[in-house]
Design a protein around this nucleic acid. Structure first.
Lengths: 255, 255
DNA sequence: CCCGCTTTGTGCGTGCGTTCACAAGGACAT
DNA sequence: ATGTCCTTGTGAACGCACGCACAAAGCGGG
């Protein structure tokens, strides 16, 4: 302790910690709803599904907001975490893509309750423009730049198909958006200084499948999954840069 | 190298690697669509948005499937990764919750194209039962256990509200599901041996807000965000278990 | 057959994240 | 005022992950 006060000693909060703060916040909100005034690291950790030592270390990065022998004041801790995450101000969010996912996002209550305000819902498809979703009128994507500037949008959400995502991203960036949440299954290219977070629904399923397979594999012995289908063409190399039309080595029908 | 062959030398693949394999897979599919037969680690890494050394190390965990001086055979690598992830078999998935999110998931093409088959879409709400979504008839949640057993469901997706999530989870588990993908904003309690992956839309936004705030903070100097609203009641402790009405010690305003 | 070019596969150093275990500190009872 | 009890905050050890940089290995040309 170099500082006498209980201020965040260091502005560098580990990424891993930042990612968990919202979880703690949610658990704390649950506690206030139940009228709990004070919570120990052990209890809060259980509610958040983490190790209590990890929780304490995480919280210690924001400052010394607990009372030894007692625990943390729930209300106070909520405020401190919210402030650290920047949730004490409200953030204007624009969602591009009013398909199933875009509509689901617009209707998602978790946004509004955390200081996020859906400033616009945009789509290219004419038939969707003008429709009302979650109290919002769907606007045409042409309006993207105008909307971002006029409504002070600082976070862009991409809920389009993979094909259109990069274009939307570029337009967000050139309009001044520096934080983007991407649901499209593509790797976005952005300049330095722009943050992109990715949520890929199918990736999560694939990770689950991997573990599920492994559980099953244990019961069946190793190598149980080789050749469930004919192993498609082992390396089968022929020339250095074979042109596309060189489809001579047909081999067996791969997969 | 202890093994002469090019089989996965070690069955322990790092989690971080597993999480990236689906990304590589997607990039590889993009390459086949463009007719590219062979790819170097440098190119593939660029397409996947990672470091090329990391990519090579990741792939080395599955075995030695590249050719030095040439690169990787796209088709072959796709097969190997797919097999490792368990995508060569098809997985029956049940989605509970036919709200906006549930419907979005059912319509999401990324599932089917990766070996996942939506076996059922369930909801408690009577008004939704019977509706057709993505070629599926919405069934009542009562059917959960029956559906899981009869259709060999091995992965459960929870797209309900926070309130119902734990119940649905418990029912999945007791019906024998050991892999769960949770979209509800709660920490699920599951027994040993059950894998849960969590996707929380609002957490991602909160992480973005944190970084966005930090960018803005740099320009405004430190402490710019203190007291944008009155700092709510510093610890204000009095007794061990103070009733809500005990509000006396104001202290100095802590922070 | 040999040589040089290209790209893989990996040994190794470094840094981050997690966990243990305990000293420091505050509250309450006596 | 003092001692006991409880919980925080953190020093230190450990383990995983990342990235550099290079040796090993295949390919094509001469």
């Amino acid at each position: 302790m170099t500082r006498p006060s209980s201020r965040p000693r260091d502005r560098g909060i580990p990424e891993a910690t930042v990612a968990r703060l919202p979880v703690y916040l949610r658990a704390l909100h649950g506690l206030t709803d139940r009228g709990v005034p004070t919570v120990s690291s052990e209890e809060l950790a259980a509610a958040a599904g983490v190790n209590s030592a990890k929780l304490r270390k995480d919280l210690s990065h924001l400052g010394s907001y607990g009372t030894r022998g007692v625990g943390y004041d729930v209300e106070y801790l909520i405020y401190q975490i919210s402030r650290e995450l920047g949730l004490t101000q409200d953030w204007a969010v624009a969602i591009v893509g009013a398909g199933n996912l875009g509509r689901a996002l617009a209707n998602y209550g978790g946004f509004v309750s955390r200081g996020f305000r859906i400033a616009a819902l945009l789509d290219v498809q004419e038939s969707l423009v003008g429709a009302e979703v979650a109290g919002l009128r769907v606007e045409h994507s042409d309006q993207l730049e105008a909307v971002v500037r006029q409504r002070r949008v600082s976070i862009g959400v991409i809920a389009t198909s993979a094909a259109g995502a990069q274009t939307v991203c570029d337009r967000f960036v050139s309009a001044g958006v520096t934080s983007i949440l991407n649901f499209a299954p593509v790797v976005l290219n952005v300049p330095e200084g722009v943050d992109v977070r990715k949520v890929d629904l199918s990736i999560e399923l694939q990770i689950l499948a991997f573990h599920e397979q492994r559980k099953a594999a244990g019961a069946l012995g190793p190598d149980w999954n080789v050749s469930v289908e004919p192993p498609p063409a082992p390396p089968e190399r022929v020339g250095g840069r074979i042109p596309v039309d060189a489809v001579d080595a047909a081999e067996e029908e791969g997969r």
